[in-house]
Amino acid sequence: MKEKIVIVDDERDIVSFIKDSLEDEGYTVFCAYNSEEALRILPKNPNLIILDVMMPGMDGYELCQKIRESISCPIIFVSAKNTVQDRIKGLMFGGDDYMEKPFSMKELKTRIYAHLRREQRIQGKTYQRLHQKNLIIDLQAYELFCHEDKVALTNREFEIIKYFILHPNHVLSRDQIYEHVWGLEAIGDSTTVTEHIKKIRAKLQKCDPNVPYISTVWGVGYKWEG
């Protein structure tokens, strides 16, 4: 899974350095250079936030309080303010960790990994997100994202996609899909699968027109091309 990390710091060189290092580790990174930009990124639902303290306008402490109104992910303060009082203030305002500038990138990466791993344990589950070309499929939240935008799917549509991606390189017949998604006791027939496939294709093509995610194998069924 590509966890999403937000960096908030008005020092662009530091932001660029951290961003490059984290992207090398496979993380998806969003950058903000002030509190207003950071608040606009929050709908991305980050898995972790790296936050500076001294910024123009709303400082890091105030921003942390604001973030905590809607986001519970780990927040690591990274700041040149290095007194014990600064560290305590950061933790009291909702931070989970505090590092001094200048810092070791290796240590920051280790702390990020530790916090993300702890979040997994707290949730009592591993992240069940799959990446398929330009799609992110969250098997537990029943959510699908295309180019970071959420695609509105019904439960049946999501179940069909889930069935496809859990059976890679398999050609699935309409009857197989119907029995798996609707159940053996369902009232109806497998022709409804065709209509659901059409709707899924239309939704995926709307956000990703050049990628055919579901192909038809004539006379047999359908195959996921993710």
Rank of each mutant, 00 (worst) to 15 (best):
K89R: 13
W182Y: 14
V6G: 08
E25I: 09
I137A: 01
D86G: 04
R156L: 10
E225R: 12
S35L: 02
R68I: 09
E148K: 11
I165H: 03
T83L: 08
I67D: 07
V53K: 01
P46C: 10
W224I: 10
P212K: 10
R117L: 12
L144Y: 07
D175P: 06
M1Q: 01
F77I: 10
N34S: 01
H131A: 15
T194A: 12
E62K: 12
S70V: 12
C64V: 09
I161L: 14
L144M: 03
K66F: 03
V8N: 07
L166V: 04
E69V: 09
S70H: 10
P102H: 04
G221S: 08
R87M: 14
G226C: 07
H131N: 15
I67C: 03
N34Q: 04
N169E: 12
M55E: 00
W224P: 04
I76Q: 08
V193L: 04
Y113M: 11
I88Y: 01
A38F: 07
N45K: 14
L42E: 06
C31S: 15
V78Q: 07
T191I: 11
R12Q: 14
E143S: 09
I165V: 11
Y163N: 11
E179Q: 15
Q123D: 11
E3A: 11
G183I: 11
M92F: 04
D97Y: 13
E159C: 10
D208F: 06
S190V: 08
D20M: 13
L63M: 06
I7F: 00
Y33N: 13
L139V: 00
D189M: 07
I197W: 09
H170D: 14
M1C: 02
G94S: 00
M105D: 07
K19Q: 15
K66A: 15
K66R: 05
E62P: 05
S104Q: 02
N134L: 00
P56K: 00
V211R: 03
E25H: 06
K101E: 05
L39T: 02
N134M: 01
T192P: 06
E179S: 12
L166K: 12
E225A: 09
K44P: 05
R156Q: 09
G221A: 01
I137L: 14
S215L: 12
E36N: 15
M105F: 13
I161F: 05
F17T: 15
V8S: 00
I71C: 14
T191H: 09
R201A: 05
P56Q: 00
L91V: 09
S215Q: 13
V29P: 03
S190R: 10
F30Q: 12
Y222H: 05
R174V: 07
A32N: 02
R174L: 02
G183L: 04
P74K: 07
P56A: 00
C207N: 13
E62I: 09
